[in-house]
């Protein structure tokens, strides 16, 4: 009896990519960004502790609108969780993750838009970058986070577009995801420290 066996592949090469270069590069970048935000929050905390009583407040309101921002925070955290789910879907069937990635992107966009709306409200109340130390810190820290969120949204949007076209590489998606997780992860720290 003559057996017919398929051609066997060669033994795998000794050197293989364990972690995609895009993820490793993004991790280094995120590490630098974590230290950037840590420096800002550190300066904020020390300045707030040394502020004279009654000076650490808005011109018209006693505190920042923490309750309204809680909704934005929930949207951002939900977006991060959806992206974790999208990653699982992508591993099983790449095409099935497109809708979840889009939903995560939309929640992230809602966060950025609502933050912008909040800024307009605060500006109308007289809180500007020059009005007080609190105003300076608020706009620098929250603004820096907003810029990162916009950058991450662009990356995630490109990932979604490539996913739809069928040209998305796993490395690109992982890189975009890593950055988005950073944006989602650093926000509760900023929210808890700056708004309360």
């Amino acid at each position: 009896m003559e057996a017919t066996l398929p051609a066997l592949p060669a033994l795998p090469a000794r050197r293989r990519e364990v972690v995609p270069n895009s993820v490793l590069g993004m991790l280094l970048f995120v590490g630098a960004e974590v230290m950037f935000f840590a420096g800002l929050i550190s300066a904020f905390t020390i300045t707030q502790a040394g502020a004279k009583p009654g000076t650490w407040r808005l011109p018209s309101e006693p505190v920042l609108p923490a309750a309204a921002t809680a909704f934005n925070t929930a949207a951002l955290v939900a977006s991060g969780l959806l992206l974790v789910w999208a990653n699982r879907q992508y591993r099983r069937n790449p095409a099935s993750a497109a809708q979840t990635v889009l939903l995560a992107w939309m929640l992230g966009a809602i966060f950025v838009v609502l933050q912008g709306r909040e800024w307009i409200g605060l500006l109308s109340q007289g809180l500007t970058i020059r009005s007080s130390t609190l105003g300076s810190f608020f706009y620098v820290i929250v603004g820096a986070h907003g810029l990162h969120a916009v950058g991450a949204l662009i990356g995630l949007g490109v990932a979604w577009w490539r996913l739809r076209q069928g040209t998305l590489s796993p490395g690109f998606l992982l890189g975009a995801q890593t950055f988005w997780y950073f944006v989602v992860g650093v926000w509760p720290v900023i929210y808890g420290r700056v708004y309360f």
Binding site: G31, V34, M35, A38, G39, S42, A43, T45, I46, T47, Q48, A49, G50
Partner: peptide
């Protein structure tokens, strides 16, 4: 900012932020 060192509230802030800034890169 160092002019504020020695004030009670500030000392806590300085110590906690120093620990955070030292531990964060090591942790990462």
């Amino acid at each position: 900012a160092c002019a504020l060192v020695g004030v009670n509230e500030n000392s806590t802030a300085y110590v906690s932020m120093t620990i955070m800034l030292m531990a964060l890169p090591l942790g990462m």
